[in-house]
Design a protein around this nucleic acid. Structure first.
Length: 771
DNA sequence: ATTTTCGAGATTTTT
DNA sequence: TCTCGAAAAT
C-alpha cells in the first residue's frame, strides 16, 4: 500500500487523499486515472478504515468494473467486499433485488435483453396487425423506448400502476383505431406484455431505481446512509438519469468523487451529458494532465486534433518522455491496398522469429464494426492471427441463448423462453399452432407452457412432438426438485463434504435437456463444431459457477441466470470464475498472441504499443450520418473519438485511409478532415498520394455543406498549433504586406494582430513567416 | 401448414 | 457478413 502511494505523482496523491466532500478529477488520457481511483478505494479502506460495504464505485462498462475489482482486490486483500464496485446498471440490479417488492415485483425479476424485447415487440405487432415493412421491429422498439422515457418524465407513477391489472390491461381492439392511436395502443400493449414477463429492460433498471428512491423516503434514506463514499468513473459519459441516481445517493454524506475527461466524451449520441461534468458543483477540482502512456510524437498529434474543438475546456497533455517515432500516415489507392499496407507493417514490426514484439501489441481501430471486413481478409491471407474484440459476444450467440432459454423454461416456465425454443429443434409448430395455443393461454390466463401442458390432449393442440417436449421439461423439473431437496453436508470444520449430486444440478439438467431435446443432435448433423464447442464451454462455465457457490444455500437455476443476466455482453472468460485476469492494459492472456481489431468505442480505456487508426476518410470518420444529424456537435464528438483513438497508442501510431468509393457514405473517399487538421510536420506520409486530392478534400466537404467552421481559419489547416504560436514581439514577414511585428493572438479566430508599416491587420498564422 | 431456399438490403457506437 | 421476408417445395 505504502509503496503504491509513493508511486503516485503529487496530483494523483492529492486525489487519493481528498476523501471528504465533492471532488472532481479531470483526468486526461493515459494520466493514471484508474490508478488514482483504485488507490483511493484502498486508501479509504486501509487508512481510513471504511467498510467496503459502504463504498460505491461506479464504472461505465462491465469490463472496467471487472478490472477495477481485481486491482482493488490486489491492494485491499481478500474478502467479499467488492460488492459495490460495479456499473450503474449493476448497482440498480442489487438495489432492486432488495427494494422492488415495494412495487409488487418479485425480487427474482428477470432482465430483458435485446432479443427478449424483440420477441415482445413482434408479438405486439402481430396482434395489432402492424405491417413490419412500414415499421421494423427495431424501429418499433426505438419508438417504444422513447415513449417510455417521455412517460417516465411526465408521470413516473405509471410504474406503480404497472402491477395493477387495471390501467394497462383493457382489451385491445385495433380495428376501430386511427394509426396514431393504434401506435399508443401498441405501446400500452407492449408494456402490458412486458409486465407479464416480470422483466425489466436496461432502461427500466434505472427508472425503477429512481422511482423507488423518490417515492419511498425510508428506502432512500437507507441507501443514502449506506453509501458513505461514492466514486464515479467516466463521469462525462453519464446521462441525466445516471446523475439523478448518483446525486440522490450522496444526499446524506456528500462524499462524491467523480473522474472524467470532457475530451473523451463519446456517448452524447445516447444521451450522455458531458456538460454536467463540466458544471459539476465541487469543493475541489484536480487536473491530471501528465500522460504516462504515449510518446510526445503521438501526444502532439493528439493535442493538435483535440484543440480544434471549440466547445471545450482547454487542457494540454504533456509527457516527460520526449521524442519517439514520428506518426505515420498512409494513403492507399484502394481499401485493399490500405489493408495490405497495415498487414505488411505488422509483419515488419513483428517478424515471426522476434521475441521482443508480440502480435498482441497491435491494435487496429475503426469507426464502425463493418469496416473490419477488408482488414480481416488481408490478415487471413497473410496468416496473421487476429481477434475481433467483443464482436459476437459469447452470451449473444444463438446456441447459448437457446440453451439458457431451456434452463429458464425449466425454472420459470415463462413465455419468452418458451417462444424461443419451443420449435428448436423443429417440432413442426408454426404460426398457426402458436396462435391456437395462445388462445388457450389467454382464455385461462396462464403462460403458454402451462396452457400447453393443460390442454395438450385437446384436438387443436395434440401433437406427438409436443407431448415429448412437455415430458422432457417436466422430467427436468423433477430432477431439479429431487436434487435440491438433498441437504448440504458439513463436517466439523464447516467444510462441505458431500454435495456431489446437488452441486451439479444445473449443469446436469442443462446437459440432459440439450441432449434429449435433440438440440445437440441438430448441431451434429450440421457438423457445427463451433457451436457444439460453445455449448461445452457454457457447460463448463456453469460447472465452475456451481463450484464457486458450493456452500451457497441459494444455488439454483434462477440464481445462476440472475448472475449472468448483466454480463450477457461480456466474453466468457470474464464471467468464468477463477480464470486468469486481464493484465493492466486490458489484454487477455490468450494462448497465442493475436492482433486485436475493434471499434474505437470499444478501445476506450485500453492501450497498445502499436495502434492503427483506419478508414480515415470523409463520410466514414467523421461519419456522414453523425454530421448530418448532429451538425457541429456531431463533428466535435467525432473529433473526440479521433482523440480517443490516437491516445490509445504507446509507441507508434499509424493513420491510414484510401481512395475509392464508400458505399456507406455514398461518395468517393477523401482524406478525413481529422487528418488534414494535423500539422503536416507532425507526421510523415507513405503511399502514393496526389497532393491535389489532399487539397480537393476541403472543397468537397464544403460543397456537401458538412463543414461547420465559423470561418476559414477554423476549417483549413491554418490554425496554429501550440508549438508554433508566435509570441508578441516576434518579427514576421507577409508576402504582400511585408515585414511586421506580432502584437496579439486571437485564440478564437486563430489570427494574429500584426503591426505593419502602414497600420495593423488581423492575419492568419499560415500567411506569416518568422524572420 | 410448415420448412426450405433464395435473393435483397443493410450495417455505429453500449448497458 | 448477417438478417429478413417472400416465394417455392414438401
Amino acid at each position: 500500500m505504502d509503496d503504491y502511494m509513493t508511486s503516485l505523482n503529487h496530483r494523483q496523491r492529492e486525489a487519493v487523499e481528498a476523501t471528504e466532500g465533492r471532488i472532481r478529477v479531470v483526468a486526461g488520457a493515459g494520466s493514471g486515472k484508474t490508478k488514482a481511483l483504485t488507490c483511493r478505494y484502498a486508501y479509504l479502506v486501509n487508512v481510513l478504515g471504511v467498510d467496503p460495504a459502504n463504498i460505491l464505485c461506479l464504472t461505465f462498462t462491465n469490463k472496467a468494473a471487472q478490472e477495477m475489482r481485481q486491482r482493488i482486490h490486489r491492494l485491499v486483500g481478500s474478502g467479499d467486499y467488492n460488492d459495490f464496485v460495479c456499473t450503474i446498471h449493476g448497482f440498480c440490479v442489487k438495489f432492486l433485488r432488495q427494494e422492488i417488492h415495494r412495487l409488487g415485483y418479485p425480487k427474482s425479476f428477470t432482465i430483458l435483453d435485446d432479443d427478449d424485447q424483440k420477441q415482445l415487440a413482434k408479438q405486439v405487432m402481430e396482434e395489432l396487425g402492424l405491417n413490419r415493412t412500414v415499421e421494423t421491429v427495431g424501429q418499433f422498439l426505438d419508438a417504444t423506448a422513447n415513449k417510455k422515457v417521455a412517460l417516465f418524465l411526465q408521470q413516473p407513477n405509471y410504474i406503480d400502476r404497472m402491477m395493477l391489472t387495471e390501467g394497462l390491461s383493457e382489451s385491445f381492439d385495433s380495428s376501430a383505431l386511427d394509426p396514431e392511436q393504434a401506435n399508443d395502443m401498441a405501446f400500452a400493449r407492449y408494456l402490458q406484455l412486458q409486465k407479464k414477463t416480470l422483466g425489466l429492460d436496461f432502461q427500466d433498471l434505472i427508472f425503477f431505481t429512481i422511482h423507488i428512491l423518490k417515492r419511498f423516503p425510508d428506502a432512500c434514506q437507507y441507501w443514502q446512509n449506506e453509501m458513505e463514499y461514492i466514486m464515479l468513473d467516466e463521469a462525462q459519459d453519464c446521462n441525466k438519469s445516471d446523475w439523478t441516481i448518483v446525486e440522490t445517493l450522496q444526499g446524506i454524506h456528500h462524499n462524491l468523487f467523480i473522474v472524467g475527461d470532457p475530451d473523451q466524451a463519446i456517448y452524447e449520441w445516447r444521451g450522455a451529458k458531458p456538460k454536467m461534468f463540466i458544471e459539476f458543483q465541487n469543493d475541489k477540482t484536480i487536473v491530471l494532465d501528465q500522460n504516462y502512456r504515449s510518446t510526445s510524437s503521438i501526444l502532439n498529434v493528439a493535442n493538435s486534433v483535440i484543440r480544434r474543438n471549440r466547445n471545450r475546456v482547454p487542457k494540454n497533455l504533456f509527457t516527460t518522455r520526449s521524442g519517439g517515432t514520428k506518426v505515420t500516415h498512409f494513403h492507399g489507392r484502394s481499401d485493399e491496398e490500405e489493408a495490405r499496407w497495415i498487414v505488411a507493417k505488422i509483419r515488419a514490426l513483428c517478424p515471426p522469429s522476434d521475441a521482443t514484439t508480440s502480435l498482441s501489441d497491435f491494435a487496429i481501430l475503426y469507426r464502425a464494426s463493418y469496416l473490419s471486413r477488408g482488414i480481416e481478409q488481408a490478415l487471413v491471407r497473410a496468416g496473421i492471427d487476429y481477434v475481433i474484440w467483443g464482436s459476437v459476444r459469447f452470451f449473444d450467440r444463438a446456441e447459448i441463448k437457446d440453451a439458457l432459454s431451456y434452463l429458464r423454461l425449466i425454472d420459470q416456465g415463462d413465455d419468452l423462453s418458451f417462444l424461443r425454443i419451443c420449435n428448436v429443434p423443429s417440432r413442426k409448430v408454426g404460426r398457426a399452432y402458436m396462435s391456437r395455443l395462445k388462445a388457450f393461454a389467454d382464455h385461462d390466463g396462464t403462460t403458454l407452457y402451462d396452457a400447453l401442458k393443460r390442454h395438450i390432449s385437446a384436438r387443436e393442440l395434440y401433437k406427438e412432438s409436443m407431448v415429448h417436449f412437455i415430458d422432457l421439461i417436466e422430467r427436468c423439473r423433477q430432477l431439479v426438485e429431487e436434487r435440491m431437496k438433498l441437504p448440504i453436508l458439513l463436517d466439523q470444520h464447516g467444510t462441505v463434504v458431500s454435495t456431489q449430486r446437488r452441486d451439479h444440478v444445473i449443469s446436469d439438467v442443462l446437459d440432459m435437456v440439450l441432449e434429449e431435446s435433440g438440440y445437440k443432435q441438430l448441431l451434429r448433423e450440421d457438423d457445427d463444431t463451433d457451436r457444439l464447442e460453445n455449448l461445452t464451454e457454457l457447460l463448463q462455465s456453469v460447472q465452475s459457477y456451481e463450484e464457486a457457490h458450493q456452500q451457497d444455500e441459494v444455488l439454483s437455476i434462477s440464481s445462476y441466470l440472475q448472475e449472468i443476466a448483466l454480463y450477457t455482453n461480456m466474453d466468457l472468460d470474464d464471467v468464468k470464475q477463477g480464470t486468469p485476469r486481464p493484465t493492466a492494459n486490458g489484454q487477455k492472456p490468450t494462448a497465442s498472441p493475436k492482433v486485436r481489431l475493434m471499434t474505437i468505442h470499444q478501445a476506450k480505456g485500453l492501450e497498445f504499443p502499436y495502434v492503427f487508426v483506419t478508414g480515415l476518410s470523409e463520410g466514414i470518420f467523421p461519419s456522414m450520418k453523425t454530421l448530418r444529424e448532429r451538425k457541429r456537435d456531431g463533428e466535435e464528438e467525432e473529433r473526440r473519438l479521433m482523440y480517443v483513438a490516437v491516445t490509445r497508442a504507446e509507441k507508434e501510431l499509424f493513420l491510414t485511409e484510401s481512395e475509392g468509393f464508400s458505399a456507406a457514405a455514398r461518395l468517393s473517399k477523401y482524406p478525413s478532415r481529422f487528418l488534414r487538421e494535423i500539422k503536416r510536420d507532425l507526421f510523415v506520409t507513405e503511399g502514393d498520394m496526389d497532393e491535389l486530392l489532399w487539397q480537393e478534400s476541403s472543397k468537397m466537404v464544403k460543397t456537401l455543406g458538412l463543414d461547420f467552421g465559423q470561418d476559414d481559419a477554423m476549417t483549413s489547416s491554418s490554425l496554429p498549433s501550440s508549438e508554433d504560436v508566435f509570441p508578441p514581439g516576434t518579427r514576421v514577414k507577409h508576402d504582400i504586406l511585408g515585414e511586421g511585428t506580432i502584437i496579439d493572438f486571437n485564440e478564437v479566430r486563430g489570427s494574429y494582430t500584426v503591426q505593419f508599416g502602414n497600420g495593423t491587420r488581423n492575419i492568419r498564422g499560415n500567411f506569416l513567416k518568422p524572420i
